[in-house]
């Protein structure tokens, strides 16, 4: 059921990207999609009653292996979140330049390259 809720969140982001006219709203839609994808990957790696993949001194390796959640999606999502921040900065920069050029955030007003 949780997977379905996560998928609904992704669809809301897709709706924002496709239907909105404001550039900032489109950026926010992409950002929501990124949240849902990252969350979905972490949800896939969860183990029931799992512990974080951090080993303490008094813990045995076999017991740790039986209880820990999946560390690989966590490492990949850590990379993905930071990359998302860089991409967001780039998108916001493009939006600011478009505002300086056209004086509005409305994408239907930007017709210089329309062909």
């Amino acid at each position: 059921m949780i997977y379905y809720l996560c998928f609904i969140l992704f669809l809301i982001g897709l709706y924002g990207v496709c239907c909105k006219k404001n550039v900032v709203k489109i950026i926010l839609g992409l950002w929501i999609m990124e949240y849902s994808v990252n969350l979905f990957l972490i949800l896939l790696g969860y183990r029931k009653n799992g512990i974080p993949p951090i080993m303490s001194k008094e813990m045995d390796v076999i017991e740790f292996y039986k209880k820990a959640v999946d560390p690989l999606p966590q490492a990949m999502v850590l990379t993905s979140i930071v990359i998302g921040l860089g991409v967001l900065a780039l998108m916001v920069t493009v939006a600011i330049r478009l505002y300086q050029r056209y004086g509005t955030f409305d994408i239907t007003e930007m017709k210089k390259l329309k062909g």
């Binding site: 969350l39 949800l43 966590q74």
Partner: peptide
């Protein structure tokens, strides 16, 4: 908060 509940404190 959901990441914290899912055992991913770094994230």
């Amino acid at each position: 908060i959901i990441y914290l509940l899912l055992g991913a404190p770094d994230i």
